[in-house]
Design a protein around this nucleic acid. Structure first.
Length: 113
DNA sequence: CCTGTGACATAAG
DNA sequence: CCTTATGCCACAG
């Protein structure tokens, strides 16, 4: 029984916190980085608990298409979009523009270890 | 141990 | 564009 499993949520939070300003990533990318590529849903679910964490920029986590699928969990209807736009990310119709440009790949940015 | 669940991903109609 | 369906997996009860 490896401790990594138990730290799954924790890792999700850590990676989310590591997302730099003005950058975004996908649930799948995080999940894959955590070693559970098929647990992308778990990542989102973990974000459910992110509200307990102050430094978890859940708004910087979107789906693979760059759609703000998780915006429903935010207070308003366009809060998430506003947050992203506030960081210099162009968002149209709940979809991030130039996603590749703003995309933050944990594999690429974080040490492979 | 079993069941429900979920902010995904992918495919099909 | 939309909805429906399946897989997938970790966690909560």
């Amino acid at each position: 029984m490896k401790p990594e499993n138990k730290n799954f949520f924790q890792k999700v939070y850590e990676v989310a916190q590591l997302i730099p300003y003005g950058r975004v990533t996908s649930y799948g990318a995080i999940a894959k980085y955590l070693g559970a590529a098929r647990s992308a849903r778990m990542v989102g679910w973990a974000m459910n608990g992110s509200h307990s964490m102050e430094d978890v920029p859940a708004h910087r986590v979107v789906n693979k298409a760059g759609l703000l699928t998780g915006k429903h969990h935010f207070d308003g209807t366009n809060l998430m979009q506003q947050l992203l736009e506030s960081e210099g990310i162009e968002v149209i119709d709940h979809q991030i523009q130039n996603l590749e440009k703003h995309f933050w790949d944990p594999f690429k940015e974080l040490p492979a270890d």
